[in-house]
Amino acid sequence: MTDKTGLRKRVARKVANAAGGGIVDELFQRITELEAEVQENRNLNVRVGELVDLVSELMAPVASQDPARIEAALAKFERSL
């Protein structure tokens, strides 16, 4: 964006905001919040993927309470991280 178009946009926003009783600033604020919320949701994908992988690979060995089996499963799992 050039300085001129940037300036034009800032002035237009101020004018529209003043005419609309602050609604433009409020909408900008809501867009920022929405973007953050969308990313929070998207971030769940890696979390869920990691959790499912961990449970699939380690739940059975850990439930067995057999130290040798737990150690073997942990070693194999950690090597692939």
Binding site: E50, D53, L54, L58, V62, P67, L74, L81
Partner: peptide
Amino acid sequence: LRSWMSEAIRLAH
């Protein structure tokens, strides 16, 4: 999560 949780399991055991 996979990295720290597997270490936590190891330490807990």
